[in-house]
């Protein structure tokens, strides 16, 4: 009945989500430290390697996205329509963001922390901070772009809501912070608690907002009907032939061919994997500071996100499907 999820896109959105979240975690940690909310800082190495991990996720996402393109060699063209296309915007923001993450890591590595200027009384701003700030901005821009790619399609009613963008931010954030917690447990134990707590908080928030979208979608009534699709007012209309029998792009792209039961299982699976289990692992990991548990939390959550993203696509009901119901 519904959109056929493409794994390239599932991986693209989840992987860059992790990268974005991880970067945000790193930068947040640094900012907290700057404000002395957080005491101990990780060393340069920690941030540098952390940034590279984030970058690796971003690159993996980018690479994965190429599999989605018919003509990856022309991918550069996709930056052209930033004025109207969220996809184009994503394509522009993503490399910018990646550059920032890279720069951020490099800056940490080389310790470019000579204060450039001072904000207010005490806030000494160095290059790292600046790059980080720019990165954060682009990171949110990227979240918004990615989310808006889906949220802007008004007749994909399941997606056409601010919740889509919020979910992208929170889910990316949660998985990034979870990864950061695991990573910190290995490389900068002092930061573990901070990341893990935030990971917990964001996971809970994400649970709330994702649940909200599930509830919303459940209540949705399709605006388009067979009646409006073919312009005939009658209660009983049934398609007898879609005009071809061996399938077409329209039947492959927008139908996953899976049963409603399977869809339901995936829903419960992703709720458990994305929210339930990570919550348990994070709490447990937090109390025991066991890197294994925290990493477990991340991996489980990431697996959950794949299921979540699959479900996100699969649940979307494309009005075009009204036209592709029956062969004969």
């Amino acid at each position: 009945m519904t959109v056929h999820p493409a794994f390239s896109v599932i991986f693209l959105t989840t992987l860059i989500g992790v990268g974005q979240g991880l970067f945000l975690a790193l930068y947040t940690g640094q900012v907290y430290a700057l404000f002395h909310v957080l005491s101990a800082q990780g060393d340069r190495q920690f941030y540098a390697v952390g940034s590279m991990i984030a970058l690796a996720f971003l690159i993996a996402g980018l690479v994965s996205s190429f599999f989605h393109l018919g003509h990856p060699e022309r991918a550069w063209r996709s930056a052209a329509q930033w004025r109207t296309s969220w996809l184009s915007r994503e394509v522009i923001v993503l490399p910018g963001f990646m550059a920032c993450v890279f720069g951020y890591g490099v800056a940490h590595y080389f310790g470019w922390n000579v204060p450039l200027f001072t904000l207010g009384e005490t806030l000494q701003v160095d290059l790292i901070m600046l790059i980080g700030a720019a990165g954060t901005l682009l990171c949110f821009a990227l979240f918004v772009s990615t989310g808006m790619i889906y949220a802007c399609l008004r007749f994909l009613q399941e997606w056409h809501t601010p919740l889509t963008v919020i979910n992208f931010i929170l889910l990316g954030g949660a998985s990034g912070f979870a990864l950061a917690a695991g990573y910190a447990a290995l490389a900068a134990p002092a930061l573990t608690g901070f990341y893990a707590k935030w990971a917990l908080i964001i996971t809970v928030l994400a649970f709330v907002s994702r649940s909200a979208s599930l509830v919303r979608n459940h209540k949705l009534k399709p605006k388009s009907t067979l009646q409006s699709a073919i312009g005939i007012r009658h209660n009983v209309i049934a398609q007898k032939s879609q005009g071809f029998m061996g399938g077409s792009f329209n039947t492959r792209e927008f139908f996953h061919g899976k049963s409603a039961a399977m869809l339901r299982s995936v829903k419960w699976l992703f709720i458990a994997l994305t929210f339930g289990l990570p919550f348990v692992f994070l709490t447990w990991g937090l109390s025991s500071s066991n890197p294994g548990l925290l990493l477990m939390a991340f991996f489980v959550q990431y697996a959950g996100l794949i299921a979540e993203r699959w479900f996100f696509f699969a649940q979307a009901n494309h009005p075009q499907n009204l036209y592709y119901q029956t062969v004969s």
Binding site: V3, H68, L69, G70, H71, P72, R74, A75, R77, S78, A80, S85, L87, I149, L153, F155, L156, S224, S248, F249, N250, E253, F254, H318, P319, Q320, N321, Y323, Y324
Partner: peptide, 21 residues
């Protein structure tokens, strides 16, 4: 110019765009 990203087909409610595979 087309990169075959299929995004436009998602944006068409009528199901009339077809990628040439």
């Amino acid at each position: 110019k087309c990169i075959g990203c299929k995004y436009c087909s998602w944006a068409c409610p009528y199901g009339v765009r077809e990628i040439d595979e």
